[in-house]
């Protein structure tokens, strides 16, 4: 009897410990998600409502907020600008990173290891070291307010090359390449026909991560773009945030939501791939 009592208490103790643990985990999830939820709620409420009190339920003022937002700055245009830059950056960085990774895996050439080490070293250089020189260089080329200086550097994305190369080492078969050669295919054709499809899972993972990184990029557009028509979403948000006169709070929340919600959707569809990409970063350590 006593033994079963003790077992019962223990079970209860373990049970309540589990409940406590789940409560903490869920609370933390709420803390992580609540700001986004409040953002979406407030994006649908009128400025007067937002200022007079908080609510957990959405309101019906979305259309009005949208009008207010667009009348102050063209957020949709910024959305399009951000998308153009992020999409071009992603395509370039994926294609050329795969090309570079394939080059390192499919061929043996002199200084191969040295060059790869050099590539890894470039990953460790802090970004702030180049901004002044980058600005002066772009200014000298008369390319301020152009998207090219934001897009072209993505051809050399060392982290993406590193990730795809790790994958390529297990995935690229030299005998398949060899037989394609005997059939008379050129080297770049072999890459496009055999290399790219085989590497596509790794390219996809890095593509999502790269798209989000470019979408969120702030420092470079801030330095290079001064024409409000060319502004990306982070620059628009900065402008709205700094403008403290006659503000439509609902419109402000909506503008922030416009910059965040697409990323949330991408994340909830592809979270597995994104977290895989993060994990791969950890394997370096």
């Amino acid at each position: 009897m006593r033994a079963s009592d003790i077992a019962g208490t223990q079970r209860r103790a373990i049970h309540s410990r589990r409940i406590g643990m789940y409560a903490c985990l869920i609370l933390l999830a709420v803390i992580s998600f609540m700001p986004f939820y409040m953002m979406i709620v407030n994006a649908t409420r009128s400025t007067a409502d937002i200022v007079s009190g908080f609510s957990l339920l959405p309101g019906g003022n979305l259309a009005q907020n949208f009008k207010e937002m667009q009348s102050r700055v063209d957020v949709l245009n910024a959305f399009r600008n951000s998308f153009i830059i992020a999409a071009s950056t992603t395509v370039l960085s994926c294609y050329f990173s795969a090309l570079t990774a394939y080059g390192f895996v499919a061929y043996d050439f002199r200084f191969k290891n040295g060059l790869f080490t050099l590539l890894l070293v470039t990953m460790m250089i802090p970004g702030q070291l180049s901004i002044i020189g980058f600005y002066k260089m772009v200014k000298g080329m008369n390319m301020l307010n152009s998207y090219w200086p934001l897009i072209l550097p993505s051809i050399a994305t060392a982290a993406t090359v590193f990730f795809i190369k790790q994958y390529a080492e297990g995935a690229i078969s030299r005998s398949a390449i060899e037989s394609a050669r005997i059939d008379g295919a050129g080297e770049f054709k072999i890459f496009n026909r055999i290399g790219l499809p085989v590497l596509s899972p790794a390219i996809f993972t890095m593509g999502i991560t790269g798209f989000i990184a470019s979408w969120n990029n702030y420092m470079m557009p801030l330095i290079l773009l001064s024409d409000p028509k060319k502004f990306t979403l982070p620059l628009i948000i900065r402008m709205l945030n700094a403008d403290s006169q006659d503000r439509s709070v609902g419109g402000m929340y909506l503008a922030i939501a416009v910059s965040i919600v697409p990323i949330m959707i991408v994340f909830f569809i592809f979270s597995r791939y994104i977290i895989d990409g993060v994990n791969a970063g950890g394997d370096k350590g």
Partner: peptide
């Protein structure tokens, strides 16, 4: 993990 993916600018404005 979600907050890590969002622009720091938007988060700060929020």
């Amino acid at each position: 993990y979600l907050p890590r993916l969002v622009t720091a600018v938007s988060i700060s404005a929020l």
